[in-house]
């Protein structure tokens, strides 16, 4: 496997935002992940592709430990996020969730105002340190600016988040993760509920966030992986087949399965 290095990161930041070693996962008796060893570059957009049931969503959901809500899930191995194994006993789950934000297939803004949606996570993690009104407005503005939504909705911040268009809702869902300064953003098919125009807009946004956050994006859409990611992982039957820079994976795949999949022979 060859992985292009990123030269934009400074020296103190770890080279890899997510590292897994011999990660195995079972749903009851069914094994969904087999010895997954991945080094995911800090500050880059990495896409996960593969046919349905290949374990890409399962992997994604292990990185913020949301899988463990299901009590029949068993996990072996380690997932290091920013050089710390998040399955270590001294790790606080709420801190993991803060560091590793997640965006879902269907936009799920809360049924509260746009402003409160943005401030929700911030208020959860900043109890006691009462931000002034100006600070809060500043957080709302900068978050919405980062997701390219500010100019469009700055005059209706009291409107409910659930009343926006799906595209705007999904952008809001990304924006509300930013105030707590996560290092990793997980996106589980973030555009699959959107129309082509919305998809293009959200892809553009993801591309804008490149460098600031490590983004791991699961997609069914190979064209999207090609357009909107810098590195790409191909998974099959719970195993990682290939992990390459996106252009290399699509142009000169090393494995035969990868070539078959991206040429549409199955999946």
């Amino acid at each position: 496997m060859k992985i292009a290095t990123t030269d934009t990161m400074n020296d103190t930041a770890p080279k890899y935002a997510i590292r897994t070693s011999r990660l195995n996962l079972w749903y009851g008796a069914f094994q969904a992940l087999f010895d997954v060893d991945l080094n995911i570059d800090n500050g880059r957009i990495t896409s996960l592709i593969g046919p349905s049931g290949c374990g890409k969503s399962t992997f994604l959901r292990s990185v913020n430990r949301i899988n463990e809500r299901l009590d029949y899930v068993r996990i072996e191995g380690a997932i290091d996020v920013m050089d710390k194994n998040i399955y270590d006993p001294d790790v606080e789950l709420m801190q993991v969730r803060k560091q590793v934000g997640m965006v879902f297939q269907r936009p799920n803004p809360l049924p509260i105002s746009i402003r409160d949606n943005i401030l929700f996570g911030h208020s959860l993690h900043n109890k006691g340190k009462n931000a002034s009104r100006a600070d809060r407005e500043e957080i709302v503005e900068s978050s919405l600016k980062q997701v390219l939504l500010w100019d469009k909705i700055k005059d209706r911040l009291n409107q409910k988040g659930t009343e926006l268009s799906l595209e705007e809702q999904q952008k809001l869902c990304i924006a509300r993760l930013l105030p707590v300064k996560p290092s990793v953003l997980l996106m589980d098919e973030p555009c699959s509920a959107l129309d082509p125009k919305g998809t293009a807009a959200v892809e553009e946004l993801i591309w804008e966030l490149r460098g600031e956050y490590t983004i791991l994006i699961v997609t069914h859409n190979m064209a999207q992986a090609r357009r909107a990611s810098e590195a790409c992982i191909f998974m099959l039957m719970g195993k990682v087949v290939e992990h390459q820079a996106t252009e290399d994976l699509f142009v000169t795949p090393e494995e035969k399965e990868t070539a078959d999949y991206i040429e549409g022979r199955y999946g």
Binding site: N64, I66, R69, L93, M94, Q95, V96, R97, K98, G101, M102, F104, R106, N108, P109, L110, P111, F120, G121, L124, H125, C173, R176, L177, V180
Partner: peptide, 10 residues
Amino acid sequence: AFREACWNMG
């Protein structure tokens, strides 16, 4: 989805 949104923000 509302609960998941909250849990995922910690």
